[in-house]
Design a protein around this nucleic acid. Structure first.
Lengths: 161, 161
DNA sequence: TTGATTTAGTGGTATATACCTCTAATATGG
DNA sequence: CCATATTAGAGGTATATACCACTAAATCAA
């Protein structure tokens, strides 16, 4: 017996559900797992995939630029890049003008991996849009982008005085 | 000089902006930092605060129930609980019926911390709602909860066959 | 009852991510 | 030009989180 019908989940109001931060983190874990499963065959995780895609989008960004685009702490980015360097997907090249700065460059191997993973990513994104609704999905991304913006953070912080 | 007007952020389409997973993670980092700053005086991080609040909501849940409610891997939960046990906010007590299971119980110290942090959290949440819009904020949480649900994951996974 | 299967948790390992401190290099104000 | 302040990263440490392999306990099936 045993009333193991208790499959909590989000439904039955068993979830601390008033905190936007908590809601985003929960969703982040869930969606991370779904997308990770989808692109696993490429040998990349979604975090790494996102990182490579962002580097390609920016060209050959400095670590600072990359960290800003990803809303990530600079030193966290440095640590996250380590496995990708080790595996030969990314190399860090010194900037011509500013000898402090280093730029992230995709290797041919990295580009190949990225292309491979992109096909898998696309399927995952399509499935997400199909389940959640393509319009709602786009609107959700816009809302999240607003929240992620520097302007939002500035206003939020200013209000705390 | 130097065209350091390049303050990437989310605005200028410098961001890889087509992936819902990536958007959620970016927002998670940003909002995590904003809320963490807000509740830092309590000595807790938002992840820990959420964990304590979730335990209180469920009463004295098994680790499995807690992991389900948080959409978190069971072993990840175990690791995350370690600092909270060490600091005396949570104790793990054996279940009466099922000798495999352990239940998370808040200590008086843990409850006190939680109360302290809740006041700070509330301010952060109010600020968020004020900036983003209370209605939009509630709608966002509902959307994220849907995405986090087991039903959504099942449908997503089923579609991958 | 007993053997096979499922379930709860633990511990190991690896990545993700933050903060703090420190160094080197650039920018800035006299 | 120099002294000061700012900025780019690196490295250390701690938490967050996932997956895997393993043990012990409970469930299920014959």
């Amino acid at each position: 017996m045993a009333d193991q019908s208790e499959k909590p989940g989000i439904s039955g109001m068993n979830t601390w559900d008033f905190c936007t931060n908590a809601a985003i983190r929960r969703a982040s874990r869930r969606v991370g797992q779904l997308y990770d499963d989808a692109i696993a065959p490429s040998g990349l995780r979604t975090t790494q995939y996102t990182l490579l895609a962002q580097i390609r989008l920016l060209g050959e960004p400095t670590l600072r630029q990359l960290a800003n685009a990803l809303v990530m702490d600079l030193s966290a980015l440095g640590h996250t890049l380590k496995p990708l360097e080790r595996d030969g997907y990314v190399t860090l090249v010194p900037d011509e003008k500013d000898r402090r700065a280093r730029r992230a460059r995709l290797t041919p191997k990295g580009l190949a991996r990225l292309a491979e993973a992109t096909a898998l990513w696309h399927k995952a994104q399509s499935r997400f849009d199909a389940e959640f609704g393509a319009k709602k999905s786009a609107a959700l991304r816009r809302a999240l982008d607003l929240i992620s913006s520097d302007e939002f953070a500035e206003k939020f912080t200013a209000a705390s005085q």
